[in-house]
């Protein structure tokens, strides 16, 4: 299979002016990826799927990642026809608050359908062009996006006998509020 730099060069030749950069992977796995701009991502994806040399017809994995300044969606592509891969695509949002829309690649690979719904549900990335974008793992009325690093879980305190660390701090807060103090680590009856 071609290297990621060769793929980038071919993409830039085919889609001049498109935003395609190589994101090197510093670790031993050396799985480098291609960062695509959102505007022409779907065209590029279709090209990668239909290109006779690459034939990346199988989208294996769609992951959301929460970085401090933006959200990122990572696509792992393989080829069942040619049995090679992976080619990794990355799409980034502009920020984490209001500009969180990315083009959906579900029309290109149906495999992205449920996985993009999961990224929407857990990270909050809105996929434009997704046929059925709604929550998949959390219930429909749920408000927040749980996999974000700044997610604050609701304070549904439940007594835990071996509380230590954060749970102990929460227990102490509740004990102070309730007025009684169940000592953490006390043996039961």
């Amino acid at each position: 299979m071609e290297t990621v730099e060769q793929i980038r060069d071919r993409l830039l030749a085919r889609f001049p002016g498109a935003a395609v950069t190589v994101v090197p992977n510093p670790g031993p796995a050396a799985q480098h990826s291609l960062l695509l701009g959102a505007e022409r991502a779907r065209e590029i994806a279709e090209f990668l799927r239909d290109d006779p040399v690459l034939q990346l017809d199988y989208c294996s994995n769609v992951t959301g990642v929460d970085w401090p300044g933006h959200l990122e969606v990572v696509y792992h592509l393989y080829s069942m026809a040619r049995k090679h891969g992976p080619v990794i695509l990355r799409l980034r949002t502009a920020n984490r608050s209001d500009q969180v829309t990315l083009p959906s690649l579900t029309p290109v690979w149906r495999a992205a359908e449920f996985q993009e719904r999961e990224v929407f549900d857990l990270f909050g990335v809105v996929f434009a062009g997704h046929p059925d974008l709604r929550r998949i793992l959390m219930w429909d009325g749920f408000q927040d996006h749980p996999m974000r690093k700044d997610y604050v879980e609701p304070d549904d305190y439940e007594w835990e006998p071996t509380a230590h660390g954060d749970v102990l701090a929460k227990a102490k807060r509740h004990a102070a509020a309730a007025g009684s103090a169940p000592a953490a680590g006390e043996a039961g009856a």
Partner: peptide, 10 residues
């Protein structure tokens, strides 16, 4: 610990 980077294993 692993050095900074990423990997997909299947």
């Amino acid at each position: 610990r692993a050095k900074p980077g990423e990997a997909y294993g299947r």
